[in-house]
């Protein structure tokens, strides 16, 4: 009987072991909607920039711009024409797509404020491609006036995103800095500049 009991106990142990093997393999996937899954949009999934990071940096910069002298100047100029140029990606992450999407966000804010006429570059694909090529192969400041004339804009709103990327031991930290500028097309003078920052990291708990 003792032997039988020992064997039964070993049998149970073996079953439990096998069950654990199987449980380790079991998983299921499903599609979810951000509205139905609390926290889905707020969780950081990598060191890249997500919508929340971009919106935070953009809102901070735009808020500073709204209360700056340049907006006061626009109010006195009878709705000058303003265009938003693409933002330059100087980071260690492939975020050109999200930065491209920010152009529309900036245009929307400017329209909401009133006081300016926003001229979108979306319908001038050749020029947009030329600007992107210039960004890619080294920016020549003298082109600003040329582009301004071509588009018919008095001011450009643009920006760049930089990173400080470090990896030490079991942690990686990426600090992002978004600079936004307002440039006078005729003189090339920077009339407004502000920086906002976000840090993303992978850390061991």
């Amino acid at each position: 009987m003792a032997l039988r009991a020992t064997l039964m106990s070993k049998t149970v142990q073996a079953v439990v072991t096998l069950a654990m093997f199987c449980l380790g393999c079991a998983h299921s996937t499903r599609a979810v909607r951000g509205d139905d899954e609390p926290g889905l949009d707020s969780a950081a999934m990598s060191t890249g920039l997500d919508r929340r990071d971009l919106q935070r940096m953009l809102n901070e910069n735009m808020e500073k711009m709204r209360t700056s002298a340049v907006v006061q100047r626009w109010m006195n100029e009878n709705r000058p024409a303003v265009s938003v140029l693409p933002m330059k990606n100087e980071t260690s992450e492939h975020i050109d797509g999200p930065l491209q999407a920010l152009i529309s966000d900036v245009e929307t804010k400017l329209i909401e404020w009133g006081g300016v006429r926003v001229i979108s570059l979306e319908n001038q694909q050749d020029l947009l491609n030329e600007i992107r090529r210039q960004y890619s192969e080294g920016f020549d400041q003298s082109n600003i006036a040329h582009w301004g004339k071509q588009i018919g804009s008095r001011y450009f709103v643009t920006g760049k995103v930089y990173t400080t990327d470090e990896r030490v031991g079991v942690q990686r930290r990426v600090q992002y800095y978004m600079f936004m500028q307002v440039i006078d097309v005729e003189t090339g003078e920077i009339l407004f500049q502000n920086k906002s920052a976000v840090t993303k990291a992978i850390v061991r708990d």
Binding site: N89, T91, S92, E93, T163, D165, E166, R167
Partner: peptide, 8 residues
């Protein structure tokens, strides 16, 4: 971008 990642 890849060059910067390589540098890190």
């Amino acid at each position: 971008v890849e060059a910067r990642r390589l540098a890190t």
